[in-house]
């Protein structure tokens, strides 16, 4: 189970990265193609959908890496039992909201299918297809939050937590590996 969940977050993160490369490809093709008379019909729509898919599919991975930010000033004043309680409170709020959000994103996608909603550009694409990335990204984030919650309730240290860098070298190292937050 542990391995499965960790892979789920990681591979959806990779999928987000793949969408980033796809955005790059579409835009380059649109821009360079124009010089040679090629046009990607509805290329702008495709890039927009890749953007949404990327933004949401990468969320769980980003969260687990501790890069979804928060204001930690108050929480960091506490240690031990009190700190644990605060973390549980924050996780509860975030999990509840994300579940609510996910439910409605899934409903919206389902409605798009039910209503036969179509993209409004040059190509007639059913909107539920690109919306899958959005809904499933949120779903994976919700799973990650529940997973984290269970973990913290069992008394483990939150995986999203990182100590602030202690030296400039460590700082540079952190920046290199992604975010330092």
């Amino acid at each position: 189970m542990r391995v499965f969940l960790d892979r789920l977050y990681l591979f959806s993160g990779y999928a987000a990265g793949a969408f980033l490369i796809l955005i790059f490809g579409i835009m380059m093709f649109m821009s360079v193609g124009r010089q040679f008379g090629f046009n990607i019909p509805a290329g702008d729509d495709f890039a927009s959908w890749c953007m949404a898919a990327m933004a949401f599919l990468g969320l769980a991975h980003t969260f687990k890496k501790g890069e979804i930010i928060r204001v930690g000033l108050v929480v960091e004043q506490f240690t031990g039992r009190k700190r644990w309680a605060l973390e549980v409170l924050a996780l509860t709020i975030a999990t509840a909201f994300t579940l609510y959000f996910t439910w409605h994103a899934v409903t919206m996608t389902y409605d798009s299918w039910r209503f036969n909603d179509m993209a409004q550009g040059v190509l007639s694409v059913p909107l539920w297809i690109p919306q899958i990335g959005y809904a499933s990204g949120l779903l994976i984030l919700a799973i990650a939050l529940v997973d984290e919650m269970v973990d913290v309730l069992r008394g483990n240290k939150p995986t999203y937590e990182k100590e602030p860098p202690s030296s400039p070298d460590e700082f540079v190292e952190r920046v290199a590996s992604g975010g330092a937050g």
Binding site: G13, H61, G178
Partner: peptide, 9 residues
């Protein structure tokens, strides 16, 4: 991956 995470955030 770095760019992806910062963007997602």
């Amino acid at each position: 991956m770095s760019a992806t995470r910062l963007t997602c955030m």
